[in-house]
């Protein structure tokens, strides 16, 4: 017994080492169960307020660029507005014939504007933190886009912040299709370059060309149809393969991500519920 205690005391450093390493590995594995670790992640209020503060300072350096982007978007919107006004005037009946008036379809999507306060592109599993949370209506599984194209899917939400899994993380696959012929495949990131991802599940009989545009398929509730994903940069078909190897240039530049829009699909709950009951029967 005495020997055992002596042995333990003599090697106490080694046991502390083993204990701490096991603890770290448990943290690594529990991370898959991401919900549990929200306390330790950067959507934690204290950590986020650090980042918010950092972002407040760094934000000044990006002001001119953001301004320019906003101005461009503004002009585009104004042009659209003018265009639509012109069309509306052309359509307006000259008399009081109210029969031709059409009620606009109910808007299904709402956008929540958010700012990126933490972002990485160089890891094998990247995450983005946004400055909007449950109080602003953000919920897990909502899609995130910006003006260029698709960004990712919301994973964790706290009161004021949320964590997004971007396309640059092999944990998610994006269901997308060719704009030209509607063939559907899924997009996965291979961990190498933040500008490119690969497209799988496109069978060899599908005619594809360099520069074909990919958009979201609209088959999931996360993204509406037709949001730009990327263009085909390069493709390859081996003699023995049934599927193409396709390299996609992503539409979004993740390095300069600043403002994003979270998509709130109003009828998502209803749709999921309906599908669930149908599958269970």
């Amino acid at each position: 017994m005495k020997n055992l205690i002596n042995f333990l005391i003599h090697h106490s450093g080694f046991f502390v080492f083993l204990l701490l390493e096991i603890l770290s590995l448990m943290l690594v594995f529990n991370n898959r169960d991401y919900q549990k670790s929200v306390f330790f992640s950067s959507s934690n209020t204290i950590i986020s307020s650090f980042y918010n503060w950092n972002n407040y300072i760094v934000g000044f350096f990006n002001l001119s660029k953001s301004n320019q982007q906003l101005a461009e978007e503004n002009t585009q919107l104004k042009n659209q507005l003018l265009d639509l006004q012109n069309k509306l005037e052309a359509l307006q009946p000259s008399g009081t014939d109210s029969l031709s008036y059409k009620i606009p379809p109910e808007k299904q999507y709402r956008f929540i504007e958010a700012k990126v306060i933490n972002n990485s592109t160089n890891k094998l599993q990247n995450y983005i933190t946004l400055n909007k949370g449950a109080l602003d209506g953000v919920k897990p599984d909502m899609g995130v886009i910006n003006d260029e194209g698709i960004v990712g899917i919301v994973k964790n939400v706290s009161q004021h912040f949320s964590v997004v899994i971007p396309v640059l993380n092999p944990k998610i696959q994006i269901n997308c299709k060719f704009k030209r012929n509607n063939y559907i495949g899924s997009l996965v990131w291979d961990g190498k370059d933040y500008r490119f991802a690969s497209l799988t599940d496109i069978a060899r009989h599908v005619p594809i060309k360099m520069g074909d545009t990919l958009v979201t398929s609209g088959l999931t509730t996360t993204f509406p149809e037709g949001i730009p994903v990327g263009t085909i940069e390069n493709f390859n078909l081996k003699e023995s393969d049934a599927y193409y190897e396709i390299k996609v240039k992503l539409a979004t530049n993740f390095r300069t991500l600043s403002y994003v829009k979270v998509i709130d699909f109003k009828n998502a709950g209803e749709l999921k519920e309906l599908e669930k009951t149908a599958y269970e029967e």
Partner: peptide, 24 residues
């Protein structure tokens, strides 16, 4: 030393969303 190393690693992990890797 070991406990300080663990705490340091964990701090970096918390800020980088990489639970446990830096601590290890």
């Amino acid at each position: 030393t070991l406990i300080l190393a663990f705490v340091t690693g964990l701090m970096v992990d918390i800020f980088m969303n990489t639970m446990g890797t830096h601590a290890f």
